[in-house]
Design a protein around this nucleic acid. Sequence first.
RNA 1: GUGGCUGUAGCUCAGUUGGUUAGAGCGCGGGUUUGUGGUACCUGAGGUCGUGGGUUCGAUUCCCAUCAGCCACCCCA
Length: 413
Amino acid sequence: MAKLQPVRGTHDLLPDEARKHQHVIAAFRDLAERYGYGQIDTPIFEFTEVFDRSLGETTDVVTKEMYTFQDRGGDSLSLRPEPTAGIARAFISGGLAQHLPLKFYAYGPMFRHERPQKGRLRQFHQLDIEVLGVPEPLADIEVIALGAHLLEVLGVRQKVTLELNTLGDTESRTAYRDVLIGYFSGHEASLSEDSRMRLKRNPLRILDSKDEGDRRIVAGAPQMGDYLNQVSKDFFQKVKDGLDALGQAYTVNDRLVRGFDYYTHTAFEFTTTLLGAQSAVIGGGRYDHLIEYMGGPSTAGIGWGCGIERLVMLLDEPPAPERPVAVIPVGADGEAEALVLTQQLRRAGVKTDLAFRGNVGKRMKQANKVNARIAVLVGGDELARGVVAVRDLDSGEQTEVAREKVVAQLGGN
RNA sequence: GUGGCUGUAGCUCAGUUGGUUAGAGCGCGGGUUUGUGGUACCUGAGGUCGUGGGUUCGAUUCCCAUCAGCCACCCCA
């Protein structure tokens, strides 16, 4: 530690930035509660196995992006790279299956050892929504609607588009996957190095390759739509119908895929073109086999995650903080009385600032700096007469108010 | 993890074709006004020119490494 600098890819949230984060979180909490979701808060670290099993041992996130360490007892633990695995684990270990259906919301820091870029940090924050035990498409629709609603409330809805796809059920998906492997294997020599790797690990991912050569091959690839069975088609149709009924616009993007086998049916992302390569603001999907895959009872699930930092970057200025009243002592006797008045105002619910030092001029400047709306000058001959000076800092208008009436008068504002 | 661009005061940036004391604006401190702010004027503080090493009589300037940010890939939130 040659220099006192933050660890790469981490960031201090100073008050201005923290305020934006809290603005997002407050909106999220409010909406989630309104939709009937309850907060769940799981630990930021788990046994490494929890993530290995849920995300798959061959995925990038698990193989090279996790912060994994041995604790003093010799257990392998990992900082959570995403929220769903921990919630699924809590569901299983807490025996929550008897309370289905469950609707959860969560938020907090996540950790991935990636190369940082704008909108991509090593410690970042996510909002998360999960619905467990609801195999019906109505849950998909609700969860997407909640995401759209959040974006709308935050005033960024127009900066983002909804992309939608289906991966089908296990049968459809397996069939398609086999066909795809067959097709791409026939073109293996022409595929990019990355995609040859994907062919082994995650063939669906080749579909959204950005490599030009890959794209030519992908253009001739079999379509997911042709391999969906009736159940899968019906499910997707119901999701689309529901979104249509809500007037929720979307684009079907058949390149939008998910990596793991437990994913089924709906996959969606709210994307933007304003954040460079980091286009996904909200990403989610249905994971009907995750809980089972992790060793729990077969339980349907759907949810999404949303990057707070990315959302904040799309945000216009959030509402300014409330402007305080500045109490300004005049003289030594004024200071004692100013302290008392300050606390009285605070107890009455008035945001109040009392500068710690300086003469009247200094503290008036300080009042300006904290953007006070009113200055109350306490002390001197006014105090002897039982009054204080109340000055409107915008208009410069100053009046005298009886000391015992100040709190009532300012409390009304 | 791969390739590339960048790194000078708290912030935004100028500058040094290698050579004595590195500049501006904003911000910050003090003052004009020891009982009245926001404007104006005066004034002050603040930089081992990201860090380490090399070349050189001499490096902030050239070279290498390293750290960090950014861009693309990758991955995704």
